[in-house]
Design a protein around this nucleic acid. Structure first.
Lengths: 338, 338
DNA sequence: GTGAAAGCGCTAACAA
DNA sequence: TTGTTAGCGCTTTCAC
């Protein structure tokens, strides 16, 4: 199986250590020696055996990104950024799909992959503070998304309550009064749904609008189908909403479809705002107004902080970083006269 | 760093080899011994160090899935299936994004990850038969998608020419005569685009329709934006098409948006068919008629054949497997009276 | 049925 | 600036 350091050493007439130093640059190597070694490497086509390196170093060069749904374009876009950033630091990123399953999330925390990954970027949805605190694995952990705070780990997230606020404020500003929320979690165990719900209620209160429980649609999951069903239910109300704030763009897209099927005009009859700024929302008809998190920043920061922890270059106490977001107004809230 | 075999051996009062055999089951272990060892494993919380195991065995337990765009939901859906299947075989799947870049594809073939992966599932778009034949890496390779045939590797794909045929035949059947194709590759180096183009021409000929070069729209990439631009160009023609066959669902979605912006009705003015059956097309307005490959089958089969090659259980000559596809008719071709 | 020991390829401590 | 060597944790051959 392939060319080893030893082969190179023999070919170049030097010791193993010297070849290793040419490859890794830990200590200086004479110019003449370096060239001979490099020549041997090129000729024989050497590449280091990572298993051996990692066995020795105690690290694998792999980091994991655990997300609740690979199918959600938001996470696919985030993953793409994280993969690129990880590669830039010499790490390979492996994706773990938790499928928003509590058991899978717990296993991940317990270090089911302990020996294969150096660190974990984790977007938990079914577990909370207690479970994270009870974590037994000892490799670095960076949390992304919402839901778990006050734990001794770096955490990158947008301010969900503020984001919801901004969405509702926008709907209020264009004159809507019966604003529905799609995507409340059924059992309350989905933290981010709770936060967005809280922002919804706070913003309603701030605008002096009554909170109407019937305008809150619960969903099991947060995909297109869930959004569509929820919207149908809202449309069946005696007094349907004139605006909808959806948990994410995916449920908003589903709502859009339900509205089209029901023959409602968007935004004239019902205005619509989502969260995530997935590309799909820039091409739907109508295009979708959304709260855009800075995915680039989230992905990059998460990887950077994780790598810093792994390599011990970061020693400061774990930080919770709020990344910026902005409202992107598109056709789904572009009403005449506003 | 963790509990090792040695710790277990000491605790249970047996040799390393015995513990290894309890863990791996390569040779029988006495019942009494097994229990003592198992007890020690449970108490100490042992899990094998994979780097060490892999160094010894010469394998890493990692397989890679290299795709041209993680952002394309088709590949995200495929990846999800492949990850699940790989896990079922005890492998971890890492995703490689080639970004449809020829250089990246070549590096992959040369085994840039030689020592980190046991095998590769590869969806090439910029390279052809020669490059695959010149491959230097020696780990197993399974090709998916179209473009490279007659190479000594397993290959899973749908019959692209037939798929295009089916799409065009459907458009002809609902009475369309000026059928455009969106997604011809500019330089001809994108194999699958060429194949779909071929199917398009053949099907036109079979229906006694003239091939009109002006109805063929070239695109640089194959995303929503590309589809939108191409559609705009087609609409600017003196005699625009009455139907469009798009390279994939993503370009079709872009085309749909261009049609909406231009105020054209779909399917009344222009009917539309894509390929891939991504979920987005089930929720767009109108919903998108598509050629649906059997993603489940493709993902599962690719992983299975790769694992079989890695583990040497498959010794038969490499096979090209054509997986089934079917036309799913939705609103974008649902015309009155057909 | 069980044990002893070699060695996978590499890094790093120590020596020269 | 370069070389020697121990040992990371595991599997596997050979011996008992």
């Amino acid at each position: 199986m392939g060319v080893s350091l030893k082969d190179i050493a023999e070919r170049a007439g030097v010791s193993l250590a010297t070849v290793s130093n040419v490859v890794n640059g830990y200590r200086p190597v004479g110019e003449h020696t370096r060239q001979r070694v490099q020549k041997a490497i090129d000729e024989l086509g050497y590449s280091p055996n990572l298993s051996a390196r990692h066995l020795r170093r105690g690290r694998t060069g792999l980091i994991a990104l655990a997300i609740p749904e690979l199918n959600n374009p938001y996470f696919a876009e985030l993953a793409e950024i994280a993969i690129r950033e990880a590669a830039g630091h010499g790490y390979t990123l492996v994706m773990e799909n938790t499928a928003a399953d509590r058991e899978v999330e717990l296993q991940l925390l317990e270090g089911s992959r302990r020996h294969i990954i150096d660190g974990l970027i984790f977007s938990p949805v079914r577990i909370g503070r207690e479970e994270v605190l009870a974590r037994t694995a000892d490799s670095p952990l960076v949390l992304i998304g919402e839901g778990v705070y006050d734990v001794p780990h770096d955490h990158i997230a947008i301010d969900n309550v503020a984001a919801s606020h901004a969405a509702i404020a926008h709907l209020v500003a264009i004159g809507r009064r019966r604003i529905a929320f799609i995507g409340a979690a059924p059992s309350g165990d989905r933290q981010s749904a709770n936060l967005r719900m809280r922002g919804y209620r706070e913003a309603l209160a701030a605008a002096d609008l009554p909170f109407r429980p019937r305008l809150v649609a619960h969903t099991d999951e947060f995909g297109r189908l869930d959004g569509m069903r929820a919207m149908r239910a809202l449309l069946a109300l005696p007094e349907p909403p004139d605006a909808v704030f959806a948990y994410n763009d995916l449920t908003a897209i589903g709502a859009l479809r339900a509205l089209a099927e029901a023959g409602r005009r968007v935004p004239d009859d019902v205005a619509l705002v989502g969260i995530d700024d997935i590309e799909e929302g820039r091409f739907s008809t109508p295009t979708l107004t959304t709260i855009a998190p800075d995915k680039e920043e989230i992905g990059r920061l998460a990887v950077r902080r994780l790598v810093a922890r792994i390599e011990g270059t970061e020693v400061a106490a774990p930080l919770t970083v709020q990344t910026p977001f902005r409202l992107i107004r598109r056709e789904s809230t572009r009403t005449p006269g506003t």
